[in-house]
């Protein structure tokens, strides 16, 4: 039984071509995190993750830490994990780029299985063919590939199982893994 009261926010925005609401439900994401025994969310909110931020903050079972920069967040999450907790880091791709040194030092190098949820700024515009494409967009997946960080697309509620795949992979490899969110959380 989940002990987290989160208002379910019904999607009212765009629909994908398979009539699936675009974006992921914040409430169901929080439920997924709790089912997977996450203990902390280290998060710098952005416009796309604002609803998720509200949802995790409303959940007493999740400890939320909001650092000032993403590199800080990576290091805080590493300390949490070394101390026996299971944190999720939620940052935008631009912040991931800022946090590269911390990801190397506090994740990849010491084999700390950081779980990352990375907002993919530029994805909606690129999908719509709008020009110019946000420069953060094309570098996101190549950057994760260069760091050998396995990643999955979390674009609709049908993709919520990817959080579990990411979690299992991080655990099995004791290395960072990520999901990429391309649309605003509902």
């Amino acid at each position: 039984m989940l002990n987290c009261a989160v208002d379910i926010v019904q999607g009212s925005g765009q629909m994908s071509d398979v009539n699936q609401p675009i974006g992921v439900s914040s409430a169901v994401t929080v439920e997924t995190l709790m089912r997977l025994d996450f203990t902390d969310v280290v998060m710098i909110p952005d416009s796309e993750s604002a609803r998720l931020f509200d949802a995790v903050r409303s959940c007493d079972a999740l400890n939320v830490i909001s650092p000032t920069r993403e590199g800080e967040g990576i290091a805080i999450a590493a300390g949490l994990w070394v101390g026996g907790r299971k944190p999720l880091v939620v940052i935008q791709n631009t912040g991931l780029m800022e946090a590269g040194d911390a990801l190397r030092g506090c994740g990849i190098g010491p084999h700390i299985p950081l779980r990352l949820m990375v907002g993919w700024r530029g994805y909606p515009g690129a999908q719509a063919g709008r020009l110019p494409v946000d420069s953060a967009h094309p570098y996101t997946e190549p950057l994760l590939d260069a760091w050998n960080v396995p990643h999955w697309h979390l674009m609709t509620d049908d993709d919520l199982h990817t959080i579990g795949l990411m979690d299992d992979t991080a655990s099995a490899s004791s290395l960072p893994a990520a999901v990429l969110t391309g649309w605003s959380f509902r």
Partner: peptide
């Protein structure tokens, strides 16, 4: 003792560790 936190992040790591323990 650890040299590889990423530049400037030792106390951030320590904060997480203190929260956890």
């Amino acid at each position: 003792d650890f040299l590889a936190f990423g530049m400037g992040h030792a106390s951030d790591f320590g904060l997480g560790l203190a929260v956890a323990r």
